[in-house]
Nucleic acid binder design. Structure first.
Lengths: 113, 113
DNA sequence: TATGAATATTAATATATTTAGATATTAATG
DNA sequence: CATTAATATCTAAATATATTAATATTCATA
């Protein structure tokens, strides 16, 4: 038995890759924490040139990781799916555990005898 | 307040990028589903040349996404953290919902009028 | 210690992604 | 309808990543 199709795994890979950039992570964390944000707001909070932000937003949009709507001349972005916030949270947990590394291990050892 | 440091977000990005490859997703899903596996077993199940598998395993190892131990001349790999299985599961949910759901699509369409 | 089996590394080329700057589009306003 | 503000797109150059094939390492054992 071969498991799920390769195309599905390619989709997952593309999905992860679309998130895999420091600037895009920052954007997604802002949207997770504060809800929808205009491009201006993101630009201000990330102190980033406008075309750069737009390019990253375009990539996230292309993979339906964020969605956007227009409000007059400004465009407001939001997570396309609340589970994306979960995804970031799990990733943070994995990394946090890793960073606390030895400390956590010692702590656990002490607690469990 | 600026939020968490940029280095942390760069770490997260590197972490996602290290997973973001169809072959590595397949490896991680096998390890999630079946527990630890030797390189031989992975090679057989993925019908992939040995050096290719090793290269992907090396990348996963470099980011502490998998860990390995030797058993004589064979090397056995496992997920470094069970939460990585959660991560894959959440990603699968997001993509499943996307593939089955018209909700997001309609939302996208509405955006363009 | 020479050999074979299992795994890892290296190096080259090809391909994809990022960045930065210039320019284009869109919608509101005077 | 010309102008401005907000956002998006395009292009070329710089970086990073993937692929392939060849070679190296490690360990058990004859």
């Amino acid at each position: 038995m071969t498991g799920p199709s390769n195309e599905l795994q390619a989709l997952k890979a593309e999905f992860f890759r679309a998130m895999a950039h420091p600037m895009r992570i920052r954007i997604l964390e802002l949207l997770s924490a504060k809800g929808e944000q205009s491009v201006q707001a993101l630009q201000a909070e990330l102190s980033m040139d406008q075309p750069i932000i737009s390019q990253h937003l375009a990539k996230l949009r292309a993979h339906t990781i964020v969605i956007s709507r227009k409000e007059g001349t400004t465009v407001v972005y939001a997570l396309a799916d609340p589970r994306i916030a979960d995804l970031l949270k799990v990733a943070k947990d994995v990394l946090n555990r890793r960073l606390s590394g030895t400390k956590t291990l010692l702590h656990e050892l002490r607690r469990h005898g």
